[in-house]
């Protein structure tokens, strides 16, 4: 580990400890690390978006780059229309979004938003319907009793039946056009149970995710920081 990496590791480790100190109680070290993170993130994202979005998609096509001539110089010097000039429209639509910051002209931003919403809806309406609706409906149209060469496959039949009952009862719970009484009420209650089980599974996965992040940080502190420093100092 070179000196610069070691310095970076120490800064990261100290900031990690500052953040973790919040678990004891709110304190100035935590606040310092929090504000530093917010500020650096904002700066990083502005720079990143400029270099990765604006430069390759707007500035280089229009004005040119080290690799080639831009569309505007081409038009102005050689009089040739280039398809890249269409990026001006996209650029202007993007610019309209910034009018949100001027209350009197905020309405201008609606053009950019309307275009992106319209484009998204037009391009992906069918795809969304196919992937998230039709394929899921198709996945629910399954035989409740699975018959194989050896007779009834009990395990698959149970799983299929459970899936069908779960989907139907959960859907009934979200059906509000009729009061949930009688059979409908019973089915809705069953739907709640299925929903609760799914929320429980989601909660379990969430706990797992959060613990994984903690393990990641602890692993960094033990391996990269403590062991890394000891190795760099030649102590181990």
């Amino acid at each position: 580990m070179d000196g610069l990496t070691l310095l970076g590791t120490w800064i990261a480790a100290i900031l990690t400890l500052c953040i973790l100190s919040f678990l004891y109680k709110d304190n100035p070290f935590y606040k310092f690390a929090e504000y530093l993170f917010v500020g650096i993130s904002a700066g990083f994202w502005v720079a990143y978006q400029y270099h990765n979005l604006l430069v390759p998609n707007l500035i280089e096509p229009l004005f040119g780059s080290a690799q080639g001539k831009g569309a505007l110089p081409l038009l102005l010097t050689e009089g040739q229309f280039d398809l890249r000039l269409l990026t001006i429209i996209a650029g202007l639509l993007g610019l309209t979004m910034l009018f949100r910051f001027i209350p009197k002209l905020a309405w201008v931003s609606r053009y950019g938003i309307a275009f992106s919403v319209g484009l998204g809806a037009g391009l992906f309406f069918v795809v969304f319907l196919q992937a998230n609706c039709l394929a899921q409906i198709k996945g629910t149209i399954i035989p409740p009793v699975v018959i194989t060469d050896g007779g009834v496959d009990v395990g698959s039949s149970l799983a299929n039946s459970l899936l069908i009952i779960g989907v139907v009862s959960a859907l009934i719970y979200f059906y509000f056009s009729k009061e949930h009484t009688g059979v409908l009420g019973g089915a809705a209650k069953l739907g709640i149970w299925f929903l609760m089980v799914s929320f429980g599974a989601a909660f379990g996965y969430t706990v797992m995710a959060r613990i994984s992040l903690l393990i990641g940080r602890m692993s960094f502190l033990i391996d990269d920081w403590i062991k890394g420093t000891l190795i760099a100092l030649g102590l181990i």
């Binding site: 992906f124 795809v127 992937a131 996965y205 969430t206 797992m208 995710a209």
Partner: peptide, 20 residues
Amino acid sequence: WVRVANALFQKKVAGGCTAV
């Protein structure tokens, strides 16, 4: 990837994701 690569182009898609 599922919405477009699988639904539109019928490509095989595998996934790795955060637990949450």
